[in-house]
Computed example of a mutant assay.
Amino acid sequence: MLTGLSFPTIDPIAFQIGPMIVRWYALAYIAGLLLGWRFCIILAKRGPIDVDPKKFEDLLVYVTAGIILGGRLGYVFFYSPSFFLQNPMEIFMIWRGGMSFHGGFLGVIVAAFVFASRNNIHTLYLADILACVAPIGLFFGRIANFINSELYGRVTDAPWGIIFPNGGSLPRHPSQLYEAFLEGLVLFIVLITANYMTKARFFPGTLLGLFLLGYGIFRSFVELFREPDSHIGFIFNNITMGQILSVPMIFIGILFLYMAFNYKNREF
C-alpha cells in the first residue's frame, strides 16, 4: 500500500468576524491583485515611454473585472458548458467555485485593451507590464488551491506524495505547489530579469511573448502530474483540457517574440 505525507492542518477559513467568513482563497486573490497593481506602477515608472503612473490607479478595477468575468465564463465554456446550459443561474454563483485561468487571461487581455485605449497607452506596452506581474497572482492562487485541497495531482509513489483530504486515501502529487513554483516563482524571476537586465521592455510584446511561452510550457508540463477534472477526464489518450488550452499559448508566445524581435519602429 502506498504511503504519503499527511496534509498539513490548515483551515481554509483564514478568519471570521461574526457572520462574515474570510477564506484564504479570497485573500490570495486580494494579495495577488494589490501586489500586482503596485508593481505595475513601479514598472511603469521605468519607461520606456512617458506614462503618468496615476493612470494606473484605475487599472486595478479593470483587471479585477477581467479576471472575475473572464475566469468564470472561461470555466463555463471550457469545462462545463452542458451543465451551465441546463442550469444557467449557476453561472452567477461564483462562490460555489469554478474559475478558469485561461478564461481569466482572456478577460484581462480585453480589460487591458479597453484601459489602454481609454488612456492612450501603447497596448503591447501595457500587456508587457501585466505579463510581468501576472505570476504574482498565479503564485498566491496556487497556494490557495493547495490550502483548499483542490486541483491536486495524480496518485504517486514519490516520497513527497501527499494524502489530500479531498483526494482519497492514496498519496498524490502536490501539483498546486509545482504550479506555484513554476508558473509563479520561476516565471516571475524570468520576466523580471528580462525587464531589468535586458532591453526587452524596449521591444513591445517581448515580455508578453515570454509569459505566454513560459506559462504554456510550465502548465503543459505540470498537467502530466495533475489529476484531470473529474467531470471531464482526459480529452483523448492522456491529453487534458489544460494542455489543449495551453499549447496554443506556446505558439502565440513564439509569434509575439518573433514580431517583437522584428519590430522596426521602436518609437513609442
Rank of each mutant, 00 (worst) to 15 (best):
residue 48 P to L: 10
residue 132 C to I: 08
residue 33 L to I: 15
residue 72 R to M: 11
residue 153 G to Q: 04
residue 219 R to A: 02
residue 32 G to V: 09
residue 30 I to G: 01
residue 256 F to N: 10
residue 160 W to F: 14
residue 163 I to V: 12
residue 215 Y to H: 10
residue 56 F to M: 12
residue 102 H to Q: 14
residue 217 I to F: 14
residue 152 Y to M: 00
residue 132 C to G: 06
residue 107 G to A: 11
residue 36 G to H: 10
residue 11 D to H: 08
residue 208 L to T: 15
residue 230 S to K: 12
residue 96 R to N: 14
residue 127 A to V: 07
residue 257 L to P: 07
residue 40 C to V: 14
residue 209 G to I: 05
residue 52 D to Q: 12
residue 249 M to Y: 11
residue 88 P to F: 06
residue 259 M to N: 15
residue 235 I to Y: 06
residue 70 G to I: 13
residue 217 I to W: 09
residue 46 R to P: 08
residue 140 F to E: 01
residue 7 F to R: 00
residue 37 W to C: 06
residue 170 L to H: 04
residue 25 Y to K: 03
residue 104 G to C: 07
residue 18 G to T: 12
residue 225 F to Q: 02
residue 44 A to V: 15
residue 85 L to K: 09
residue 80 S to V: 11
residue 130 L to I: 12
residue 167 G to L: 01
residue 257 L to Q: 06
residue 20 M to R: 11
residue 133 V to G: 07
residue 12 P to N: 05
residue 255 L to V: 10
residue 221 F to W: 10
residue 6 S to N: 13
residue 99 M to I: 10
residue 7 F to D: 01
residue 238 N to G: 07
residue 113 F to V: 14
residue 87 N to S: 12
residue 130 L to E: 11
residue 175 S to K: 02
residue 57 E to N: 15
residue 157 D to R: 03
residue 202 F to Q: 15
residue 148 N to R: 04
residue 97 G to Q: 03
residue 49 I to F: 09
residue 238 N to R: 15
residue 267 E to K: 10
residue 98 G to H: 05
residue 257 L to A: 12
residue 158 A to H: 03
residue 160 W to L: 03
residue 58 D to K: 12
residue 1 M to N: 13
residue 52 D to K: 10
residue 141 G to T: 03
residue 180 A to W: 06
